[in-house]
Design a protein around this nucleic acid. Structure first.
Length: 256
DNA sequence: ATGACTCGCAACGCGAGA
């Protein structure tokens, strides 16, 4: 019954004590990390391996960077999202573990919109949809999880009007996210939790955490073969209140 | 309200994040 989590840590170096504490408490079997913000050789492999995890790392200096941790071997490890050979951002990493194909993704923010950054976001989402569709054809359990930088619905934020013109909430962004759902993927958190205003990110600024003014932008999307096995899901909200917290918290699911 | 974030980098402020 593997527990699979995703967490944008906003620098693995700055977050290492928090990450190690949470790994010990939450005991996830598979962890997808985003924004590690370091090159492969700087990843704190030894500290994480000492807790029983294997690591696959696709790093980049200063920005982006993704990694997959697993208590079982990581096979068929593959970095980069197909569809644009010129894209140098380290935002995508896939591996097979626990018999599940997992994709760890850090979807571009896209602000300001409109503009080149928003165009990049939408193009990236097109590439992700193509990859997601190709994975469905394999008819095996797939978990595509990470920081999607998409607020799927108005109830996934505190004040929809404040987000109306933002790249995370524009109609085109939400349409591109819904396309993944229409392909046949299931939002693991939303499938089991109907309640509004459950967030995975709170800005560092303006007392957003204290006021609970957050957004839900970190998601685990499950292929039908994975969704059939969905037992529980959750958001480890309390992690946000800790010393030197990331602005994102872990989101997780457990599969039978 | 003389306030109001946190990273990495190589600054000795800036860009990026969301």
């Amino acid at each position: 019954m593997p527990k699979i989590a995703t967490w944008n840590v906003n620098s693995i170096k700055a977050r290492l004590p928090n990450v190690l504490d949470w790994l010990k408490e939450a005991e996830p079997d598979v962890v997808l990390l985003q924004e590690i913000k370091c090159q492969d050789e700087a990843f704190p492999r030894l500290e994480i391996e000492s807790l029983g995890y294997r690591c696959a790392v696709h790093g980049q200096k200063s920005y982006n960077g993704v990694a997959i941790l697993s208590k079982q071997p990581l096979e068929e490890v593959s970095a980069r999202l197909p569809g644009d050979e010129a894209d140098e951002h380290a935002r995508y990493l896939e591996a097979t573990t626990f018999g599940i194909r997992v994709g760890c993704l850090y979807l571009p923010n896209g602000n300001p919109a409109p503009g080149a950054k928003y165009d990049y976001k939408l193009a990236w989402m097109e590439r992700l949809a193509a990859r997601a569709e190709a994975l469905l054809a394999e008819e095996r359990p797939v978990v595509l999880a990470g920081d999607y930088n998409v607020i799927p619905e108005p109830e996934d934020c505190h004040d929809p009007k404040a987000w109306a013109a933002d790249a995370l909430f524009l109609p085109q962004t939400r349409r591109a996210f819904r396309r993944l759902l229409w392909l046949g993927y299931t939002d693991a958190f939303r499938a089991l939790h109907g309640e509004p205003h459950r967030y995975s990110f709170w800005d560092y600024q303006g007392g957003a955490w204290q006021a609970d003014e957050g957004i839900r932008i970190d998601h685990l999307l499950l292929s039908p073969q994975a969704a059939d096995r969905l037992l529980e899901s959750g958001i480890d909200r309390e992690v946000r209140g800790r010393e030197k917290a990331s602005d994102h918290v872990p989101v997780w699911c457990r599969l039978a």
